[in-house]
């Protein structure tokens, strides 16, 4: 069982108060949707949780260890932000190859692309793909780690109905395998994920 606890999280960006007294607790198998309007600090929250932003008040505990001090924490999560981590001038295959080296994990590319039914894009240059296709590929990064937590920043943006369903299914599968998922979104996902906080 894993547990992620956020205690009295308060964060300033410059002089602006972005996050105020956030408290929540997530266990293995939980998913949480963070709703809020543009600029309300959703992305900041995810960047705090993934240890990029280290200056904040309050505590984030993963299995009762403060994440700032836990050297192993960085291997426990995967963060898919709004930047798609793709090199425009390279083919999809080469991009996957680069991830493979960074994550030091060998994966069958064709099987990976089948997740979103985009096997035919393997040799295409990323620059020639649509935003939705790029988003699908950037979400494939989740398969490269054995992480316990997923932080997804606006994952449903650009995705069509079918691909959204595939993603939701992926998240549900991850949940049943004891994964914790935190999603930010500015659309209503209440029908799919019941657990929701507004900031």
């Amino acid at each position: 069982m894993n547990e992620l606890k956020i205690k009295d999280l308060t964060c300033y960006r410059g002089d602006n108060l972005v996050l105020k007294d956030l408290n929540t607790k997530l266990k293995s198998g939980d998913s949480l949707v963070i709703r809020g309007s543009n600029g309300s600090g959703k992305t900041t929250l995810l960047r705090v949780l993934s240890n990029f932003i280290k200056l904040y008040n309050g505590k984030i505990l993963f299995n009762d260890h403060n994440v700032l001090e836990d050297a192993n924490y960085r291997n426990c999560f995967n963060f898919v932000g709004q930047k798609n981590c793709l090199k425009d001038n390279l083919s999809v295959k080469n991009n996957l190859k680069l991830w493979e080296i960074i994550y030091q994990k060998n994966i069958s590319y064709s099987k990976l692309l089948e997740d979103f039914n985009i096997s035919h894009l393997m040799e295409r240059d990323v620059a020639s793909l649509s935003d939705g296709q790029k988003k699908c590929i950037s979400l494939l990064r989740l398969n490269f780690t054995e992480s316990k937590i997923w932080y997804l920043d606006e994952p449903f943006v650009f995705l069509d109905e079918a691909n959204s369903q595939i993603l939701i299914q992926k998240i549900k599968n991850f949940n049943t395998n004891n994964g914790i998922v935190i999603i930010t979104s500015n659309i209503n996902l209440q029908n799919t994920f019941t657990n929701e906080i507004k900031i």
């Binding site: 990029f52 960085r74 963060f79 930047k83 981590c85 090199k87 991830w99």
Partner: peptide, 13 residues
């Protein structure tokens, strides 16, 4: 700009 720096820094602190 494409976000890879985040990934790299996460993997190689």
């Amino acid at each position: 700009e494409d976000g890879n720096l985040d990934v790299i820094i996460q993997r190689y602190p």
